[in-house]
Amino acid sequence: MNVFRFLGDLSHLVAIVILLLKIWKTRSCSGISGRSQILFAIVFTTRYLDLFSNFISVYNTSMKIVYITCSYATVYLIYGKFKATYDFNHDTFRIEFLLVPSAILAFLVNHDFSPLEILWTFSIYLESVAILPQLFLVSKTGEAETITSHYLFALGSYRLLYLLNWLWRYFSQGFYDLIALLSGILQTVLYCDFFYLYISKVLKGKKLSLPA
């Protein structure tokens, strides 16, 4: 495992933990898209179906368990414990517009037409666009709390670091996976606008607010 891959995983973990802590400490999930969190729970579930059949390392297995557990915990906090603070009115992105095309594409473009492989491919496609309901929510309310911005920055950095990891693996091992690569590029591109706002505003101590 190279440093980019490790930093990517770390960044992903930090994002997930920031979100959980934010909701837990403030006892509120306002400004957070429950729909994006449902999509992430689906992503982890369909990707890590090989949890018990495909052992890579203790590190891999533990990270998978942590990601899955945290994503379900987040969904529970939003739709269960802190439901009263959830922003139903603004979180209106139609997730079937992401789920259905991802599923169709996974059937059409995959490495192997087998159930596990199709579900893995589906999870890769879905992950690349799963943040859209969250970005939609931010654009609808026109602002994001600073802690939510940190969450989005860590989550966006994760796939960017994976892109560097794939570049590294291509040159050092000749390894590449076009499905993951192209989806990873799309996923990172979706964050570009946000990255710009984060660097130009949040890092200078200002709250992230969008021009009216």
Binding site: R5, D9, H12, D50, N54, I56, N60, M63, K64, Y67, H111, W120, Y162, N165, Q173, G174, F175, Y176, D177, L178, A180
Partner: peptide, 10 residues
């Protein structure tokens, strides 16, 4: 294209 049979990434 080299595809690792066992997926080793997260």
């Amino acid at each position: 294209q080299v595809i690792l049979k066992k997926k080793d990434e997260l």
